[in-house]
Structure formats: structure tokens, C-alpha cells
Design a protein around this nucleic acid. Sequence first.
RNA 1: GGCGCUAUCGUCUAAUGGUUAGGACAGAGCCCUCUCAAGGCUUAAAUACGGGUUCGACUCCCGUUAGCGCUACCA
Length: 551
Amino acid sequence: MNRRGVSLTTAGSFRAACHMEIFTSPKYTRPAIVTVAGIHHHAARIRIKTDYGRPGNLAGTAASLYSNFMIRVRFAPSPTGYLHVGSARTFIFNWLYARRNGGTMILRIDDTDLERNTEASLRSIFEGLQWLGLDWDEQYRQSERLDLHRQLAESILAKGLAYRDFTPAAAAETDDTEKPHAAGAWLANPGQREMSAEESDRRAAAGEPYVIRFRVPHGSGEVVRFHDAVYGEQSKSVDDIEDFALLRSSGAPTYHLASCADDVDLRITHVVRGQDHLTNTFKHVLIFRAAGIEPPQFAHLPLLIAPDGSKLSKRKHGPVVSVTTYRDSGFLPQAFINFLCLLGWSPKDDREKMTREELVGIFSFEGINRSNAVINFTEEDPFDAKAVWLNAEHIRTMPAASLSEALLPVVHAAGFAVTAEKMAQITPLIQERIRLLRDVLLVADFFFAQELAPYPATELIPKKGDAAMALRSLQKALETLATAEFTHDGLDAALRSAAESLGIKAGQMFEPIRVAVCGRKTAPPLFGTLEVLGREICLARIEQAIAKLNS
RNA sequence: GGCGCUAUCGUCUAAUGGUUAGGACAGAGCCCUCUCAAGGCUUAAAUACGGGUUCGACUCCCGUUAGCGCUACCA
């Protein structure tokens, strides 16, 4: 046990007397357990030791310690589409950080844009997260918290840090944003910002629609600063930040307002999100400041982009941007998580294949790099080769029983009636031969189908051999298999000695047998295959092959 | 246009200012082998460009170029 003493800095009469200790396991492989000796705070896992004990008050202190110390992160998707691979990665990094540090993972649906949200999209997000097997501790929906957002806007307005803008929405639209703006001219809607409080109040009271706009202190020479855990110190002059909207004329909050209001209310400690929000963060810092709240910590993630360097979009790149595509193509959730983590983050050693648990143990913001990462796909090959390799790697190293279980529904979905027992026998033969779960259909089809797919008789003829040799081999195989012990070793011995008695190489004899039984030249190892197929099927298929050669 | 961010093999990435610039995937070749895989070995492949600072720069600074992001009453 590693012990760190930390002074209690929360307000209250116990400040001087309380002492908090954090116990963490070696190498931080588990969530930090905040344990303060003395009393035990179950929910918080906090115990407090003081010089003079007053348990009632200590419980309160423990609770406040908990809220000050525990890490709270959120994933805040807006339900306007399926779960995007980039969003999934953002979720994963938040989740990893929370789980790594014993924090709280929050799912917050950012659905303030009522017109663009769909329930279907929400379902697809849940579906994706469920497949990935990632959980969360608390869940909120922004549309249910609109009062909170409005209150913040009103309070900022009351402080004079925002103003009403009565410019009609239609007029604002004609202000062509496509065209480059003259320097400085784009920062404000003329007249609105300087409107007297009296006029503003009067027009609002008269029912004239307006948006509440943040009054950025232009000309003050101020520079907005924040520290980003990935991108370092960030700064921007207030003169380069426009007066952005907080509340729409409909009374609905904008993203900036709602996001900040909720981050405050939910006591978010770390905002981990895509780098596309990096410049928005200056506005957010301004909002936090206006709300009188210390901003959370920020960590922006490099973006995931397409091979042509453009942002991944469904319109342009198709289904490869949707998490469900990976699920339906036979990726393992943990392999997919592994792959996503390797895009934009590195454990700094040469590790590539990692389980979810290993990732929890090793993840940190330090390993995140700053440049965008390409997901390398093409039209012919929709999946990044490394993703496929990692998937194969996870398939190979997982217990055969688990793989068999994962394979069964894939096989059933393709219309084959295979029992779990049979699948369990087949699995070891194909485990290192499939890269995606759906490959099972290509590699093991001859186990499932009653009738072999038609194949040309010439396939039966071995290399450096002829039809006569194939025929002799198959006839000999027929005799041999009729009596041989149907186990791997029994078949091995029987067939090798059969080849010897024919005076041909074992490999040459195996080739026609393999094709006869599997219907193609590439297949899993022969003896195991024969064993699982069983004597009856093997003999029947060899007879068919002989007939095929004779015709 | 303005502002911000970024730049190492084809791709993902590593490298306290001192390494023959490392690893992985994909590619090529060889070995192993009943085919296919898996595995082993070998190979090719990068610091965007130009200036500084320094004994020494992938690393720090400036510029150029390129890419990305933000610049909505979208998120």
C-alpha cells in the first residue's frame, strides 16, 4: 500500500484539524480509494482522522471531500446520428480515465437542438455502447434541464456580462457568413450591444424576441487562457472571440451555454472531448468565469480522419464511420476498443494488443498525442488492416470456449443449424485462421452444410500428380478410413502408412482427400477436420469425389 | 479572410538536446509445414521545406508550405 497524506482544504471549522490520506494500490492498477482513517464514508470510501472527533460534522466533511476529490467525467453525444467511431473513442478515453482513477462516468445526452434529434439515433448510441460493453454511472438529458440553462443565462445577463440582441433571425441569416468579413466588423451586431438597459428591458417586456449574447470584453486587451492536458497552455485574445449566443430567441440554450451549465451543475472535473472543441473552450472559460465557477480541467483529443485527410462522415465515407458496422462484421468489442485506443494514444512501450483491463491500468493523458489519426480504409477494404490484425490477435488468444460462443450466433444467422457441441469441436480448428468472426462462414462452411458446394474435378488432382494418382489415393483413403480409429492421431498414423503403401508422398495423398472432404484446397489441418466431420460424412464425400473423377 | 491547432516510414506510433531514428500493421523474401493459417528470421520504408540557437536539433525559436478545426439563434 502506498500512502499519501493530503491536507484538507475544504472550507469549514475542521480545516486545520482534519487530515486526509489517500491509499492506492501499487502501480495504480486500481481506482484510487480515498480512505481517511477514523470514520468510514461508505459511498465515498472516505474515512477521516481528526485530532478531536465530532462524528456528525465529519460525515459532512467527508461528503464534501468526496465531491471535491472524486473525478467526474462525461460523454456528451448529441443524438443526430448513429454512434460514430470518433465518438466511441471519446467515450472510451473518458471511461478509461474514470475507471482508472475511481471516478464517475456520466452519460449526458446533449439534445438541445430539438429539431435535429431523433430517438432512432439515441437507440443507436445505446446499442453501440452496449456492444462495446462500456458502462456509466449517471445519466442525464439536457432537454430535461432547460431551466438550469436559462437560469445561468439570466444570471449572466443580470450581471451585465451578456445583452439582449433583438436582431431578427431572418436578418441575421442574410448577413452572409460565407463571405470573408472585414476585420473587426463581424464581432458584434451593431447597436444591440450598446443598447441601454431601459430600452432592452422595455422591448423584452413588450414581447419582442431576442437572443441573449455574451458580452465579450473586446478592447480590454485581455487574453483568455486555459491549460489543456494534451495541447498545453492555450491563449487567445478576447478580440478574436465573437459575441456568441447563449440563449436562442425560442428560449432554448445553445450548446455552449447548456454544456457549461451542466458541467457546473454535474460538478464535472475533467472535460475530455474532441479537438474540434479546442477553440470553443475559450468561450466556455468565459462562461465559467461569468458563472463564478472555476473551470474544469480540459483534455482535447486529436481527431479521427479519413485517408484523404477529411473528417469522417457518413455521406462521404459510408458505413465505416458507424460502430455498428464493426459489430456486424465480426469485430470483438475488446479488439475494437484496443484499436481505437491506439489511434491518438500510445502506452509509450511497444505494447499493441491490450485487454480492456490492461488499458484501464495504463491509460493516461500523457500518452495522447496532438496530431489527427487516419483510419486507413479503402473502398475494397473497408477496415483498417491494423484493426483486423488486432481482432485476429484477440481471437487467437481468447479461450476457445468463449470464441465458440461468439461464433455460434454468426453461424446461426447465416442459416446453418449447428449445435453448440459441434461448434466447440470446430472452433479450435479455425481459431487461428479467422480474423473477423464472420470469416467462420468462409473457413468452416463445409462443416455446416450437408452438401458440398460444387467444385471442379480438376481440383482433386494433386500437384505433380495426375487423375490416376488422385483416384488411387481416394480409393485407398476409402478403405483406410472405413476401419481407422477416428481420432487425430489414429488418422495421422493410418493415412501416412496408407500413403507409404501406395508409394506416394503423404502430402500428395492428403491433397485429394482434403478437396474431397472440404470442397477446396485450403482448409484447416486434415486429421482434425476428418475427426470432427466423422467417418460417415468423410466416406460419403470421398465416394462422391471418386464418382466425379470417373465421370 | 481572421483566429487556433498540427506536421517522424504507405498507416498507427516511440525517441530527459547526444540512438546505426525504435516498434507494430500492411508489402517483399526465406524457414517451418499435409494445404491454409499461426510462428520464426531477413528486407525495404520516415524526421514537410528554409533559416536560426547550440559543440551537437526529430526534439527549442522564427518563417514558409500543407492539413485540420473554430469563426451559426448546429453540436
